[in-house]
């Protein structure tokens, strides 16, 4: 998904881009009125700035929608799998150690979620730190 916008400010490798909502990105979105407000017609995106656009430049921004879905599937898929495995592990451990099965499963769930959370944190920070940010793909018009 692509959108046009105006660079408001830049910092390091990133730029804040004011995109014209209700024109391209948002016109299909059923939650747009909740997201940007009924009377507010512009939204601010933090985008990667490999072309080193400056404040005032009119740019085209690529928003990686498919990557968001993949990231969400990974995020909630891992958490769900960890929750189920944690509860199952807790239950089987309770049979071996003669503990209360509900207490053991609950503890297993909490432990598994902590481990999965830590793994996801490392994964997203190490491998995909900037992977999911929108990216400025071209400068349409230089600012004054």
């Amino acid at each position: 998904m692509r959108d046009k916008g105006l660079v408001v400010s830049t910092k390091d490798d990133f730029a804040q881009v004011e995109v014209q909502c209700f024109i391209e990105s948002c016109h299909d979105c059923s939650a747009r009125s909740l997201c940007v407000g009924q009377d507010k017609k512009k939204g601010i995106l933090v985008a990667r700035n490999p072309l080193e656009a400056q404040a005032g430049d009119e740019v085209e921004v690529d928003i990686p929608e498919t990557k968001y879905n993949q990231a969400l599937i990974l995020l909630f898929g891992v958490l769900l799998a960890a929750a189920i495995l944690g509860m199952a592990a807790g239950y089987f451990l309770s049979l071996l150690l003669s503990l209360s099965s509900s207490m053991a499963s609950f503890s297993g769930l909490l432990l598994a979620l902590l481990i999965a959370g830590g793994w996801l944190f490392r994964h997203f920070h190490k491998n995909r730190r900037h992977h999911l940010y929108p990216k400025i793909t071209s400068i349409l018009k230089r600012g004054d």
């Binding site: 939650a31 933090v46 990231a71 995020l75 959370g117 997203f124 999911l132």
Partner: peptide, 19 residues
């Protein structure tokens, strides 16, 4: 958790997360 794990994902989700 999502804001800490991936700020761009949090930015992209917007209203959908509470939804």
């Amino acid at each position: 958790f999502i804001r800490k794990v991936s700020p761009p994902l949090y930015q992209a989700l917007g209203i959908y997360l509470p939804l």
